[in-house]
């Protein structure tokens, strides 16, 4: 009786000294490796989630994109040139073609729809709408000009619905309406400078783009 009690107490003290009593050393190692592997797999899954969320958040949070850089340009109703002189300390667009002249008009549709009017000249002119967060939502060239003028309206979905409701019954809208999902964005006018001597003409053409509030 007394010897059995003595053995039990000795087992308990041995167990306390060597950690888990029931598992041999190899099995304990296997369990630790398995737990580490499990944590690695969970970490990789978390990495994938972090990767996707980061990629989706970069355009939303970026403060170095074109929309932020040029948001002060063209608020006076005319597109303004992004000139190489950089008198306002504005950054030049990256990967831009040196043989083009670019004028920018930033818009905010909170105040109402914007009307963009561009005259067609002899040099190729392209107008693009860049929304906040990336993506060109509309592109038109001066080939689409009617009587030498390219004209369209930029508006939000609600503003378009409002205008459709105001349209007269049975009469098709005469204006070209472009819907922007975001309130803010840029209207970019790009003119190709075919010959170095065309630069002044190209600058006049690009900065001649009007972008004011529509009535």
């Amino acid at each position: 009786m007394s010897t059995a009690g003595h053995d039990a107490s000795r087992d308990a003290s041995a167990a306390a000294r060597y950690g888990s009593p029931r598992l041999p050393r190899g099995a304990r190692l296997t369990a630790a490796v398995r737990r580490l592997l499990l944590a690695t797999v969970a970490g990789l899954v978390l990495a994938a989630i972090v990767h996707i969320v980061t990629i989706l958040l970069i355009p939303v949070l970026s403060a170095s994109d074109a929309i932020t850089a040029y948001r002060a340009l063209g608020t006076g109703g005319r597109a303004e040139l992004i000139s190489a002189s950089g008198d306002r300390g504005l950054p030049l667009p990256r990967e831009a073609d040196p043989a083009t002249v670019t004028a920018v008009c930033s818009y905010d549709l909170a105040a109402g729809p914007m009307r963009v009017v561009a005259r067609a000249g002899t040099l190729p002119l392209g107008l693009t709408l860049h929304r906040r967060g990336g993506g060109v939502i509309y592109a038109i060239t001066d080939r689409a000009a009617i009587r030498g003028v390219v004209e369209f309206l930029v508006m939000t979905e609600e503003q378009r619905d409002e205008r459709i409701a105001r349209d007269e019954e049975g009469e098709a809208a005469r204006e070209l309406r472009v819907v922007s999902e975001t309130d803010q964005g840029l209207i970019v006018a790009r003119v190709l400078v075919r010959q170095p001597s065309d630069r002044a003409d190209a600058e006049a053409l690009a900065s001649g783009v009007a972008c004011g509030l529509a009535d």
Binding site: I55, L56, I58, P59, S62, S64, D65, A66, A69, Y70, P91, L92, P93, R94, E95, A96, T102, V104, G126, L127, T128, L129, H130, G133, G134, G135, V136, Y138, A139, I140, T141, L186, V188, R190
Partner: peptide, 20 residues
């Protein structure tokens, strides 16, 4: 999304489809 993130990291004005 990858191209969008790449373009948003710098001052990029990509050519529009139909523009060039």
């Amino acid at each position: 999304p990858y191209m969008r993130a790449y373009l948003a990291r710098g001052v990029h004005l990509p050519l529009g489809v139909g523009e060039g």
